[in-house]
Every structure is written in structure tokens, then in C-alpha cells.
Amino acid sequence: MTTSAAGVRARVSIVARGDGRGGTVLPDLEGEGPLAIRRTRGLGAEARVMLVGAMSGPLGGDHFTVSARAARGARLRVGSAGATLALPGQDRAEARYDVRLTVDDDAELLWLPEPLISVRGSDLSVTTRVDLAATARLVLREEQVLGRSGEEPGRLTSRLTVWIAGDCVLDQELACGPGAVEGWDGPAGLAGHRAVGQVLLIRPEFATDPPTARSWEEGAAVMPLAGPAALVTAVAPDALRLRRLLDTALASLE
């Protein structure tokens, strides 16, 4: 970790691999400064890791990078202890949060952090890049909450790109909050909803047997992508109802 006038630079790296006997080992766990890593009890073949925010943030000017890799044979579940709060810094500089996920053949990654809350006055840019091998499996959830209860949100930009065996199957950016593109909260964008989220499911068997598209009137849809993947997108008035909607939609895919 380095701290400068501009903000904190921190990197976290998680590597999991199969132990050759049906289990998963964690040979490499590196956390620093504002992001600590805790190994927790996994279920069966799975290894579980928790990201723990040891300091508040990201604050304006901070730059966090989190990378996780499920190597061949691994089943890795990553969660977080509580929500992440994007907070304003002293000089109103933008903060960055970069997530890099890699899943090898015959491996599975469950990336299930708690929501990101965009606090009034904050300015955060999140990029998530996922690279999967042809037979890799993934469940990825991301939830964004715009402002704490009753509060105006900060500015939040989040781009998610997903590559499977070298092909880009999803490239999506959501920008919201003051200074974001005009109409972000209008009838085409979020229309006053304060929580937005998605769950991405990648399974090699979807290539031959894709899930059926479905939608829910409350504001959710299951969408098979052009590739062995399905995306659940949902909007809701708050984080609790968002999670419920995402879980309902996800259950229809199981």
C-alpha cells in the first residue's frame, strides 16, 4: 500500500487452485491496507474468502485493484464483510476500483460481494474485467445503491467486460449520479429507482442449452447472452428489494 496526497493505492490478490483430490487450496492470498482478506470455512470442495474493509473507502483519489484467479480444478467463493462505501475525498478527485477476475478450464468462481453504496459527493469509477477459459464457470453479482437512505447519490460509473475463450460476450457500462449522462434517472435509465444490480451466470452447457428469457413486472429480466452466459438485470427502490428480485430471477435459472 502506498499513501500519497492523491490517495491510497492498494492491491489485493487471491489465487485458488485444485488440490488434485477434489478440494481447493489457497496458495496465494495478499491483502494490504484498506483491504484485508480472511479465509473462512468453505463447503465441500469450495474455498471461501472474505474481503474485509479495514479502512473506510474508497475515498476520492484512492485506487484499489482486486484480482482473483480460480486456476484449474478450483472452486472459489469470494464475498465481502458488509457493503462497500464510495466516499468523497478532500479534493473531490475521482476514485478507482478495478476488479480483475480469471477463471481457468475446469474451475468455478463465485464472486458475490455485498452492495456498493454511492455516497453523496463521492465520485467512483469501477471497472470489472472477467476472462474465462472455454469450460470455466462463473457466478458474478454486482449491486449498486445510489445514496444512503434518503440521500442524493454520488457519481458512479461501472463498466463490466466479460471474455470467454478470447471472445467478448458482454460489455456494459452504467453511469449515474450528478454529472453523469443526461437522462440517467429518466424513464429509459433508472426512473427514480435507487438500487440497480445484475447477476451474471456463465456455464459451458448454456452453449447448447441456453436458458429462456424471462421478465418480472417489478423490474427484472433474465437475458441469455450471445454466448454461454445469462445476465439477470434488476432495478428496485432499495437494496433489500433488489437482492430479493435478483434471487428470485436467479432461482428460475437453477
Binding site: 463498466r159 467486460t161 467478448c168 460489455d171 456494459q172 457500462e173 452504467l174 453511469a175 449522462v181 424513464p187 429509459a188 435509465g189 433508472l190 426512473a191 440497480v196 428469457a213 424471462r214 421478465s215 413486472e217 423490474g219 427484472a220 429480466a221 437475458m223 438485470t233 434488476a234 432495478v235
Partner: peptide, 21 residues
Amino acid sequence: PEALPARSAPLLEIGAEAHAK
């Protein structure tokens, strides 16, 4: 083509799926 913008509008996507049915 990765340099192209990728901005999305959640309610356009969700609304299109409902409308199609």
C-alpha cells in the same frame, strides 16, 4: 471495437424483454 462506448440503460433492456412477450 473495444474502444467503442458500452453505455447501457437498464429499463430499456428490462422493458424490451417484457414487451416482446
